[in-house]
Amino acid sequence: MYRIRRFEQTSLKAYNAGKMGGFLHLYTGQESVAVATISLLGENDHVVTAYRDHGHAIAVGMTMNECMAELFGKATGCSKGKGGSMHLFAPDKRYWGGHGIVAGQTPLGLGIAYALKYKGIPGCCLTYLGDGAVNQGVYHESLNLASLLSLPVIYIIENNGYSMGTSLARSSAFKQLLAQRAEGYNICWDQCNGENIYEVRAKTQAAIVRAREESRPTVLEIATYRYYGHSVADANARKYRTPEEIDHYKTYHDPLLLWQKRLIDEGILTEEQATAIDYEARAEADAASRFADESPFPEEADIFKDIYSELDHPAEGENAPRGTFFFN
């Protein structure tokens, strides 16, 4: 969690220094969700998420260097500078993005689960979405298909209370529990508080077992909170909610501090160890920022690479690529 938090702080600093452009959707405040859930995954389990994807990327084991360089648009980024903040990928770590369109990833997670079942692999796909995504049609189509086809997909709703500047009360007609909509699709659902990592892990584990052993989907809603705006370009970040609300969460509900305190209380961690972890995380993030800064941008010729597999890996002889692919 310290690594995610320090990565985000460093990326914000770099953004404000003009080192990157576009959107930057910070995960700060929500760290416990990605860490608690992804910490349970095994070698056959997969992850796909939306555009607030840095936390998941680091949790699956991507390096800060490749993530930061991607934010900077550098050739050393995980996507060679072609994806950006919202589109981090590491298929070697079974991390399938990083998707920019709200709920657009929800059928992709379904498809990954479909492929696992098709190939007879006992795994699952954790598919993350925000509270804003639950009102997109394709999410509901995915829930119906997940249940109908009995697929091992786990939808994790990271409910931070706001879809951009619109509160839950102003966006969802059924306000009690977003996960409860799963009942309409005959899908098991549950809800938990993201501050309590033991609870999140227990409920996620139940879903993973259901996926692996019964090939059944789950919808798990996890209450959380984001400290910054929707993105750092969110001009109204402190207008649709009060500064007091944000301060309240930071003071009393910070998942990182609560978890650290709990581990210290339980005798698992010492203050000195916690300080050392934080120190290392800061140093790692600073080094990643320097790495990204010193890395080269992609070459102009790279614009036309990584579009078609056929051109990136051309066959020879009669199967060689034919015709014009690009029209400049």
Partner: peptide, 21 residues
Amino acid sequence: DLPISEGGFVGMAVGASMLGV
């Protein structure tokens, strides 16, 4: 056979194809 959910099942197929189906 799939139900009438083109957005859902085209996306599902895209996701499955990423894993080699």
